[in-house]
Simulated scan of single mutants.
Amino acid sequence: MSETAEKFETAMSVWKQWQEAPWGRLRYAIAEANLLRHFGERAGEPLRVLDLAGGDGGDALSLAARGHHVTIADHAPAMLAAATERAAAAGLTDRIACVEADVNALPAGIARGEFDVVLCHNLLQYVDDVRRTLAASLAPLRPGGLFSVMAINRHSAPLTAAVREMDLAAATAALDTDQARTQMFDSALTLHTAEEITRHLSDLGCQDLCHYGIRSVCDYITDDARKHDPAFYDGLERLELALTARHPYMHTARLFQLTARKHLR
Rank of each mutant, 00 (worst) to 15 (best):
M1F: 12
M1I: 13
E3K: 06
A5D: 15
F8G: 14
E9I: 14
A11I: 14
M12N: 15
S13R: 15
S13V: 15
V14D: 14
W15K: 14
Q17D: 15
Q19G: 14
P22N: 09
G24I: 01
G24A: 08
Y28K: 13
E32V: 03
R37K: 10
G40S: 00
E41I: 08
E41Q: 09
A43D: 02
G44N: 10
E45R: 11
P46I: 11
V49W: 02
L52C: 12
G57N: 03
L61I: 06
R66A: 09
G67E: 04
H69W: 10
T71N: 06
I72Y: 06
A73G: 09
A73Q: 12
D74W: 08
A81I: 13
A81N: 13
T84E: 07
A87I: 03
A89R: 13
A89G: 09
A90W: 10
L92I: 06
L92C: 09
R95I: 08
C98F: 07
V99N: 08
E100H: 08
E100W: 05
A101R: 01
D102E: 08
P107I: 09
A108K: 15
G109S: 12
R112Q: 12
L119F: 06
L123K: 03
L124K: 06
L124A: 02
Y126L: 12
Y126D: 04
D128C: 10
D129M: 15
R132D: 13
R132I: 15
A139F: 04
P140T: 02
P140D: 14
L141D: 04
R142W: 03
R142G: 04
P143C: 03
G145S: 01
M150A: 11
A157W: 12
A157G: 11
P158M: 08
P158N: 06
P158I: 04
A161S: 15
E165K: 15
A169W: 05
A169S: 12
A170Y: 00
A170H: 00
A171L: 00
A173V: 04
A174Q: 03
A180D: 02
T182P: 08
Q183M: 15
S187Q: 14
I197D: 07
H200F: 09
L204F: 11
G205W: 05
Q207F: 02
L209G: 02
H211F: 14
H211C: 08
Y212K: 07
G213L: 05
G213Y: 03
I214R: 10
Y220L: 09
I221K: 02
T222W: 05
T222L: 11
D224K: 12
A225E: 13
K227T: 02
K227Y: 07
Y233S: 14
D234A: 10
G235S: 09
R238F: 01
L241H: 10
L241W: 01
P248M: 06
P248C: 07
H251F: 03
T252F: 14
A253S: 03
R254I: 04
F256R: 02
Q257Y: 04
L258D: 00
A260P: 02
